[in-house]
Design a protein around this nucleic acid. Structure first.
Lengths: 252, 252
DNA sequence: ATCATACGAATGGGTCACCCATTTAAACAG
DNA sequence: CTGTTTAAATGGGTGACCCATTCGTATGAT
């Protein structure tokens, strides 16, 4: 039951030690780790092992490695990026279908909108309305690009999640929308009427949030998501079932 | 806009390629990657870079590396381990609190129970009832271990998610519960009355699912989760805010 | 023949001594 | 004072090498 002698690999020890230092607060975001060569001296190990450890910490999203003199590994501010990437990965592995995502969205977006309506501060409202303005620009601007409008749609939904103040909702929301984005390559909306309907939905949701009407926001978000999903379904006339495009996890 | 020459690090290219092969299905769980030295020949790179790539893939939970002759890197079955580890990490960084998780649970578990009530097949009911029997054994058996009962509680909730047929719910549910489990080291339930109340809740939920009463199942699940969260809150009388035990990411 | 032991090959883990590209700051020329 | 060059420190990368683990196989005693 006791662990075997030296059963830990060297790089794992390094990862544990550095991670513990970060979690204990001995290393704060923005702090810089010693150079790889100094770490070699400190830990009495080889540079390759040091680098494997840094690679793992980097992948975990705990540090960021920069090049050049006085570059090095700096402790990153905690964020939800890595977990979003991992969940996206899991979804791709498990062959999650668009219907699965749609069902999940319908379960969660209503609650998010309702919570946002209860918690929104004036600055939050301003941010939402700013996104609305940008969305309208994408809709009516000269360079009318449906893809940009969708980006704004997603930004608004994530903004709602951020208003809840709950990072779990933010992480899950980002994950869902980033994965959904993978479907747009095939089923991009080209009908302007659909986009306009979408825009009106967003405006109504923001108005309800602004007024603090949580139940109304919830109902609007639900019908919005439901209608969106139906449009996506109608747009999918392809031979096989929709599946996300096979790009690797982006920007990781 | 085009990426700079060789802007990718070598190990990142390797990670992307191998990961894409796994996600495409060209590499299936159980398959074994070539040996590190063969990969050196195939990719025309150094062994150190190969190993950094394998380390990252290992950390992502995509492969498992074994020692000895005819050891090597085997593709792992998709799992939620790495995601759970990441979420645990976030919680340790105090970015996610128990309250956040609790709020999220209350948002999602009701819908899961309702969907399960609508979709449950007789075999699903049998499985739920089997779990109930085991939970009762943990409660009344000679070796009365609260921890085992909690495991059964979690198994039942995950079983409900599986009945929905939606892998997104399953993944999210596993993630949440496995993370919540990290709190039990400090706030283990020792009062038998709480456990019994929990058990009655579960029985009622299963009964509602069996009868196909989705709304009733939803309400029961909501009150169950809400009461559970209140108990957890009351149990936390410690000086500081509840935070998961500081063990490193388990078995990763 | 059978079983136990010893050996050797292949593998991942680890180390060392290098070299290169990038980046910054100091030194220098105008 | 300004712009340019240069040197140093850093992370990225490579190849040769050794070690511990593991397993198949050969060897040998029974």
């Amino acid at each position: 039951m006791f662990r075997k002698t030296q059963h830990n690999r060297v790089f794992q020890d390094l990862v544990d030690q550095i991670q513990a230092a970060i979690l204990d607060g001995r290393l704060k975001p923005g702090d810089k780790l010693p150079s790889q060569r100094d770490l070699v001296d400190m830990f009495q190990t080889s540079r390759a092992s040091i680098r494997e450890a840094l690679r793992v910490l980097e992948q975990k999203g705990l540090i960021e490695v920069k090049l050049g003199v006085s570059g090095g590994a700096v402790i990153k501010t905690a964020g939800t990026e890595s977990i979003t990437a991992d969940l996206t990965l899991l979804m791709q592995q498990q062959q999650v279908s668009f219907d699965h995502l749609a069902e999940f969205r319908e379960s969660i977006e209503g609650d998010v909108a309702a919570m946002a309506a209860l918690k929104a501060a004036p600055s939050d409202i301003a941010r939402l309305e700013d996104i609305l303005v940008q969305a309208e620009a994408c809709l009516n601007g000269d360079d009318h690009t449906p893809y940009d409008f969708i980006r704004m749609d997603i930004r608004l939904h994530i903004a709602l999640a951020e208003i809840t103040g709950n990072p779990v909702f933010v992480a899950v929301m980002k994950m869902i929308h980033e994965t959904v984005l993978g479907f747009y390559d095939r089923f991009t909306f080209r009908r302007r009427a659909v986009l306009e309907e979408n825009y009106r939905d967003l405006g109504a949701i923001v108005a309800a949030v602004k007024a603090g009407r949580s139940e109304e926001a919830k109902k609007l978000a639900l019908s919005h998501v439901g209608r969106f999903n139906r449009h996506m379904k109608n747009a999918s006339h392809g031979p096989e079932a929709p599946s996300p495009s096979n790009r690797a996890t982006p920007k990781n």
